[in-house]
Amino acid sequence: MTEEKIYKVQICTGTLCHVMGGAELPALEDHLPEEIKSKVKVKGMVCANYCTETNLKPPFVLINGELMSEASIDKIIHYIQNCEKNDTFK
């Protein structure tokens, strides 16, 4: 048996991320395409100060530890689909 791949999506719950579009990212679960639905786990994470410590823009999410800025539902889905297609799961 091979170990099942799970994409852990952590959404920053800080106020800045929330106001700048992060508020609607938890809806990701309702938008996941069938083929990746069972492989994605969505969670919140306490603000890790990516907004002050990088020059990147909110909202921030971590996908299996990989940082994504200006995250949107579409962007997250694309990222995961690409990982699946190119077999670059981390």
């Binding site: 719950t13 800080g14 106020t15 800045l16 929330h18 106001v19 306490v46 603000c47």
Partner: peptide, 16 residues
């Protein structure tokens, strides 16, 4: 509510 959100950010307030 948008303005409220902006004010919270400007005041560095984490609701959490």
């Amino acid at each position: 509510f948008e303005e409220l959100g902006a004010l919270l950010v400007a005041n560095n307030i984490e609701v959490e």
